[in-house]
Design a protein around this nucleic acid. Structure first.
Ligand SMILES: [Mn+2]
Ligand SMILES: [Mn+2]
Ligand SMILES: [Zn+2]
Ligand SMILES: [Zn+2]
Lengths: 129, 129
DNA sequence: TTATATTTGCAAATGACTTGCAAAAAGCAG
DNA sequence: CTGCTTTTTGCAAGTCATTTGCAAATATAA
């Protein structure tokens, strides 16, 4: 495992929330090239060391966010469109319902996306109201 | 209301599922410019005549999909990554849970995204297995 | 119909993400 | 350690959805 690879994985592990590639590349900018970040994130995801999802935020547009995959299963998140922090909503609670949909409609689910966007408690206060 | 606007809204209304801007622009290509499609979709959404969401499909990448907003509330969808058709999962059933999350975490939800991706029944057969 | 406001097309820009290619680093055998 | 093979990296350039500036065309108001 190369040092760029190690650094990226370490950064993902130390984060308590998903990070966008843009942000990650910025943080590692004097360590490696953005292209290397992209390539290694693919590598990490293919090797089950990381997971990602695509989220659209009004300020930052559409980006892919990554987290390290350490034991704990699939989580869902709330994203604050003011401070851009994520709040963990806990483990996935849709497995049952997805099975239901599968039998009901005959399709096979490969993946699912669920997230909330809005304003977090702290930002509500800072922005008054 | 201009004729481009009317044509776009008509197309959205006649569709029984969300359409990507790319697809919509292609369908209306000898009628108006893609830029006009983009601009009018923004107009329609701002005026509550259409809704949209961003979805990532392995084949087509990340795109925004639009539907006409005719009475019926917010729906969720399954997207087939083989034939790229959407299957309606019915009206939104998360309002209750979102209120729950709001009180639990103190944030205010402005929007939410939920969708499934996979292979539809027909495509499973065609692709054997 | 004329004046004013809005919309359209075209060309160019943006921004996330990918790709070709040659140099650099990592793995491996001796 | 050393020479050799494989993988990874950086750089430049490309792709693709979406946006923007600007002047011409169209719609709306007077
Ligand atoms: Mn954000
Ligand atoms: Mn698709
Ligand atoms: Zn916040
Ligand atoms: Zn299908």
């Amino acid at each position: 495992m190369t040092k760029a690879r190690k650094a990226i994985l370490a950064r993902l592990k130390s984060a308590k929330q998903p990070i966008s590639v843009t942000e990650l590349a910025k943080q590692l900018s004097d360590f490696c090239n953005p292209v290397t970040v992209y390539r290694n994130l693919h590598y990490l995801e293919n090797n089950n060391l990381a997971t990602s999802f695509v989220l659209h935020c009004s300020d930052h547009g559409t980006e892919r966010y990554y987290s390290a995959k350490e034991g704990k299963g699939h989580h869902h998140w709330f994203h604050c469109e003011s401070c851009h922090q994520f709040i963990d909503l806990g483990g996935c609670f849709y497995t049952e319902q997805m099975r239901q949909f599968e039998t009901e409609h005959g399709f096979t689910v490969h993946d699912h996306t669920f997230y909330l966007t809005g304003i977090c408690e702290d930002c509500k206060q800072e922005l008054g109201s």
